[in-house]
Each structure stands twice: as structure tokens, then as C-alpha cells.
Amino acid sequence: MEASKVYYTSFKTSGSENLLQKLRRLCITAGMKNIDFEDKYAAIKIHFGELGNLAFLRPNYAKVVVDLVKECGGKAFLTDCNTLYVGSRKNALDHMDTAYENGFTPFSTGCHVIIADGLKGTDEALVPVDGEYVKEAKIGRAVMDADVFISLTHFKGHEGAGFGGALKNIGMGCGSRAGKMEMHCSGKPAVDQSLCVGCGACVRICAHDAPHITDGKAGIDENKCVGCGRCIGVCPKDAVNPTNWNASNLLNYRIAEYSKAVCQNRPCFHISLVCDVSPNCDCHPENDIPIIPDVGMFASFDPVALDMACADACNKQPVVHGSVLEEQMQHVHEKDHFHMVHPDTNWESCVEHAEKIGLGTRNYELVRI
């Protein structure tokens, strides 16, 4: 397959151009204005950040994209779907409160926020995709009602998928609560009770009452567990681990197929900002220090090529002193930063499967501007 163009610019600025102006120039150079936005609804998929997390993208970046859509005659809105787990974005009201508190108001971004799967995460469109693992994706209805789809992604690590790039932002992010359950359901965690201290973090984070504390140790009821993996991320002793070692691959395959369901049959454009590269997802109510220095801003019509370009750029970066990545290097020695941070994950499976199903290509040409 012919290489897809991925456009890139660093975070280095001059007195004549700031970062927001660079992002605008990047989007225009990459061809965003070639999309027909006239009188079209444009969904801009972004992560608003869990309350307490400060690694999410600043709303200033979103305004650049919104302004470009409006200049082209489009009707823009920022969107995301509700979370499967307990947190500050588990229903539309809490989700919008969180978005506003984190700065994503109509006054700062120039457009409204719409939670795509409705009040309780049940407003979904069933989208035929006929994949190997997903036959009918459950996508937030507002996402599918839009004429044009734009992903604006904070590129970072992820405890389940390896990293959270464009495909993760699109596939998992646009899934309704039932869709998220479908993507997560193949792997269910278990507790190493020799490491467990009975702190109850897993109990507090679970939306399905699966973890329980008995005689000072946690256990997980597999009949209630949906396999979302939140307990894995919050355990302070790394006592909770997946029992299905293929779960990461299956999760990524389904993310790829959900991404195809979102992007097929309409104009799409994708932007990824590789900054504040935290080891975990912005879904966490906290963020650790970045694992690598800030890299730059990337844009492409091909989300697969975009993720590959971002991953390759990240793996060329030095390790930030004091980061989780530096700590992991004492135990794991690999060239891949994301696999070192989360050794049980395999991010390559997502881009490989996305290429296989025709969503894009891993072969890219990096165009520096």
C-alpha cells in the first residue's frame, strides 16, 4: 500500500508564531480545509480529562480546530462518550461538569460540548462493521449523527492498550457504555493475594461490584466483572493482573474495528499532540510525570499511519529522569518505551489489525513543516 502522509511540527516556537498558530498551520498544510464543511455537523472527538488529571490537552488547542471548522462553514461540537468505570465522567451531567471544570466551555473553545451516548451512556447507534471480532459496533449516537469526524488526541501511555493514540481515542472513546463493555470483555483480572494489602482501591473504582475484601484481601467475582481493567490501574501494589494473556490483543483488535465503524463512509481528519506523555490514560484521576520529553504535533487523514508516526517518534526520545519508564528500565530492557512501561500490553496489535481491515496503513511519509 502506498505510504500515507503524516504532517509534523515540533513544539519549538519563534517570536512570530506561537503553538496555537503552529497547530493551525499544521492542520491547513495537512489538508483539513479540503474537507467540505459547508453546513455540515463536525464532531471533534477529544478526551476532557478525569477530574484531578492535568495531562489532558488544553482547551486552547481545541479552539484552533473549532475555529477552522467554522471558517469553512461547518457546525462544530466537542464530544466524548461516558465511561464504563466509576469516576467523574460516568454520566452526561457529571461528564459535562468535568469538561467545564477542566476548561472546555463554549466561551473558551467556541463551541458546545455534547456527550455522544446520552445521559446514562445508552444512546447509541448500532453500526455494521462485519469485523472478525465485532459485527455491529455500539457507537455514541451524536458521533454517528455528525457529517464529518475529527479526532484530536492526546498521545500517551495506556495500561490496557499500550498507548492511547488516535485509534484508542476513536474506537474506545466513541463506544457507548455497552460498546466499551464489548471491547473490554475478553480479559478478566485476578488478585495476587501475596501482594494485596486490602486497601480497597479496586472496590472503590469498580462500577459493577466485582471486587470484594475478605479477611483483609481482595478477590474478584468473575460473574460480575466486565474486564475493563480499571482495578489493574489503581492497585498501588500491582496485585491485580489480567488472567487472559491475549486480552490486550483482543482489546486492541476490537478498538481497531470500532475505529473503522466510526470512520467509514464519511470525511475524517486526525490530529495527535505528543506532549505530557503520561504513562497512563487521562481517565485516571491523577497523572504521573511524563515518561519522555514533549515531541510535537502530528496530523493526517490516516489514523493508522498517524499512530505509527507518533509511536516511532516517541521511541526515539530519551527517558525522563524519575519517571515510571526509568524505574521500569531497571527490570525490562527493550527499545519500545510503551512496552517497557506496560509489559503485558501489545500496542502493535491494534495498528496491525487496523491495517488488515483497511482502515489505513502503517507505511507513512513524515512531512515536516
Rank of each mutant, 00 (worst) to 15 (best):
303 P>L: 04
252 N>G: 03
287 N>K: 04
271 I>A: 10
304 V>H: 11
237 K>E: 15
272 S>N: 15
222 E>P: 15
215 D>Q: 10
285 P>S: 08
290 P>L: 11
272 S>K: 06
307 D>Y: 12
276 D>G: 14
305 A>R: 05
306 L>W: 09
304 V>F: 13
240 V>D: 07
294 D>W: 09
254 R>S: 09
249 N>R: 13
250 L>C: 00
296 G>C: 06
302 D>C: 10
309 A>G: 03
267 P>E: 07
218 A>E: 11
287 N>W: 11
287 N>I: 05
267 P>L: 03
301 F>D: 03
278 S>I: 07
247 A>I: 00
246 N>R: 05
300 S>L: 01
251 L>W: 09
218 A>Y: 10
261 A>P: 08
298 F>A: 04
285 P>Q: 05
231 C>H: 11
233 G>E: 15
262 V>N: 03
310 C>D: 01
223 N>Q: 09
238 D>A: 12
243 T>R: 12
234 V>L: 00
302 D>N: 13
279 P>V: 13
278 S>V: 06
234 V>E: 09
228 C>M: 00
301 F>T: 13
263 C>L: 15
228 C>A: 08
293 P>E: 01
279 P>N: 10
309 A>M: 06
297 M>A: 04
293 P>V: 09
302 D>I: 01
271 I>P: 02
306 L>C: 02
237 K>Y: 15
254 R>K: 15
301 F>Y: 14
273 L>A: 11
285 P>D: 05
231 C>N: 10
294 D>Q: 07
238 D>H: 14
292 I>H: 03
260 K>G: 04
236 P>G: 11
244 N>P: 06
303 P>D: 06
294 D>K: 12
235 C>R: 08
274 V>N: 02
280 N>A: 13
308 M>Y: 06
264 Q>K: 15
300 S>N: 00
244 N>D: 14
307 D>E: 06
298 F>G: 06
237 K>T: 13
293 P>S: 04
254 R>C: 08
295 V>E: 06
266 R>D: 01
236 P>L: 11
217 K>N: 11
291 I>K: 07
278 S>T: 15
264 Q>C: 04
305 A>W: 10
289 I>T: 13
226 V>A: 00
235 C>F: 12
283 C>S: 05
238 D>P: 01
228 C>N: 03
305 A>E: 12
305 A>L: 08
252 N>V: 05
220 I>E: 00
288 D>Q: 11
287 N>Y: 12
222 E>N: 03
289 I>F: 10
221 D>T: 09
227 G>Y: 10
240 V>Q: 05
255 I>V: 15
240 V>P: 02
260 K>I: 10
247 A>W: 02
263 C>E: 10
218 A>I: 07
268 C>N: 15
262 V>L: 08
242 P>T: 02
298 F>M: 03
305 A>V: 05
288 D>V: 01
284 H>L: 08
226 V>F: 14
280 N>F: 12
307 D>P: 11
223 N>P: 00
238 D>L: 12
247 A>T: 03
282 D>I: 02
275 C>M: 15
298 F>V: 04
258 Y>P: 01
241 N>I: 13
234 V>N: 02
310 C>G: 03
251 L>G: 03
229 G>E: 00
228 C>P: 02
215 D>M: 07
293 P>G: 03
236 P>N: 07
216 G>L: 10
266 R>S: 03
274 V>D: 05
287 N>R: 04
266 R>V: 05
257 E>V: 02
